[in-house]
Design a protein around this nucleic acid. Structure first.
Lengths: 201, 201, 201, 201
DNA sequence: TATGAATGAGGTTTCATTCAT
DNA sequence: TATGAATGAAACCTCATTCAT
């Protein structure tokens, strides 16, 4: 890959991710648990990482990059903006249906970035992540312009905010379904798309 | 107030909030630190709360309720939707200029709610919080309709998403200024307002 | 009395004794609990005693002396050795039916004496206690001799051991009834008396 | 053994026993001290036991079983009842010459059983202990009958009480030598044996 | 290289004691 | 005199990290 990880390192990442998906709290997860979930000994973790913090930071970024890249591939495969956007919303739903997906951490208002100071040290992976997120955004906006559903008259920042706003609203819905008892997924998706179009055409 | 707290309890809350504002992590803050910040002895904390978790949960909700209520008062004081919305954006900016304000925790994609399981036990304060947030939203939407800048043709959920989207985009900007180096606060505020209007009129 | 205690001091003693009877452990009982049981404030305890240890030591000895003196009066009232001894056994049963009577502490192989080092400092009360216990023993042995059920040929130590042995066996029965499921109180009392007579006549 | 303990567990037991023998109070001994006495780190204790209480309960029962079993072997080795009984009295003396032997805890009027509630959970070891104590008692009584020094006409409970009484008296002497300044060990042993015979032949 | 037993620093919590009222 | 709010020393226990195997 862009950044080479040993097989064991990836096993450790996957172990942690598994725990986070199950609802574990990244601040409270224990090295013991990570090792167990990875199917290795506790000492082995320290053969590959200098500290627990490093494991967690790297694992989260690793996983985020994987998921964002996979998302790009899934989105790129679709024909129309409508379909692309719909796939993205489906992915968001999926991400949030995990009690606590890693993506959830990312999307939450930049939560991770500021929250987990340790991440700051992972500049390379962080940059990669931003790049991959931007790739999705650019792809969607460009496609919208090609289809003439997005005007392109507005500034890039405006377009970004429009997209982000539509996604943020839907993410909130996806993450807090209990707050919106009467709203179906279909409705929520439609609302998100209409918000996007209204803002951009 | 709605929920009565002893003077010392509030001192403890304020001590914790001070620490969080300074960037302390709620998962890593120590009882010792909280007590010091509150200007009391460590043991005193346990005269008022059963555990550290309880202190943190209650302090965060207490502070959120205070801030949301203050926000409502600030917003209600303004005449037009434009001004009300502008004030709200200013508040968001302010909240995020703290390295880590409590509101930040709230806005982050429902972060808190799921994140800090312990909060679940504070049903009363949580309900109060939701009510207060809803009050702001309703107030803004109603005013918009009165001014005829918001049509009211759309469902409540749609209007909610529109508002939330505009705010989420701006919050992201406020929390991650470094991601938008060329964008001024004025621009960002304008964009947020235009997104709101486009979505709702 | 021999040793004058203020009214409040006695209230405190009684508070502690109440707790011990309920099964509280003298090593784990809290000043708070003692004060509550005595119906006074926590600070008041320290107006009358220098430390928790002092309260407990003095309370136990105070109560033991009371009970031993009461025992003497009860025993002295009876006519024959058989009746006197029977009353003593009844008192032992009573003492042990409390989950944890103070007498229990005394009888347990000198338990208290060595166990609770702090007691050593209460020389006066301790001496009083020994005197009172000795008074009962002497009374019983003398009466036995007067009735010619006890020969008096044996040394005082021998007679003491005989009495103590009979009582110790019965005390074990009284304290650990579950170890002797088929044995009735009547039987146990008879056995104790027969052991006494066999040893001494 | 009947109940398998890891080598480290036994080291911990021995550490605690060493402290108790030195007069430490089982209610006040610190984990730190136990670990030090065992020559290991504090954390290691918790690799083998769930709590301090568990360590103490298990250590005491472990040690009692060891001592009671050793006592049986020593006693069984002797020829006559007189010698067997004499050995038992010597063991009692030995046990009590420790400021606070574990056996002391047992013999003290069932002290341990009721006193240290936590022990109740160690049913298996407790049962084992009772069995081993009973084995000694039965052995002595049977031998007495074989030698025709014990008649066997009396009930088992009576015989038990006779034995227990003789031992309890001597134990009191052994534990509280200062109460019997003029009495030699030889005398005390003779008295105990005479009490036993008088009661049982 | 992989392990997990051992460790002790560090955190939470308890509670005897003080002292201002 | 009586109180109980406040305190912080001290104890239990956890868990990241080390290191001998």
């Amino acid at each position: 890959m862009e950044i080479g990880y040993a097989e064991k390192e990836i096993a450790i990442f996957n172990g942690l991710i598994k725990l986070l998906r199950r609802g574990a709290n990244p601040y409270q997860v224990k090295v013991q648990d990570i090792a167990e979930a990875a199917g290795i000994g506790k000492g082995t973790v320290y053969e590959y990482f200098a500290s627990k913090e490093e494991v967690i930071s790297k694992a989260i970024l690793y996983q985020l990059n994987l998921e964002v890249k996979a998302a790009f591939r899934r989105i790129a495969r679709e024909e129309s903006l409508r379909e692309k956007f719909s796939v993205l919303l489906d992915l968001i739903l999926e991400w949030f249906s995990d009690n606590r997906s890693t993506v959830n951490l990312l999307l939450s208002g930049g939560g991770l970035h500021n929250f987990y100071t340790f991440l700051q040290e992972e500049q390379q992976e962080l940059a990669l992540l931003k790049e991959n997120v931007l790739r999705i955004i650019t792809h969607l906006l460009e496609h919208g312009r090609m289809e003439n559903v997005i005007s392109g008259r507005e500034s890039f920042y405006y377009q970004l905010m429009a997209l982000q706003g539509a996604l943020a609203g839907f993410s909130h819905f996806a993450g807090q379904r209990d707050l919106y008892p009467g709203v179906t997924v279909e409705e929520a998706k439609n609302v998100a798309y209409r918000l996007l179009l209204r803002a951009l055409n």
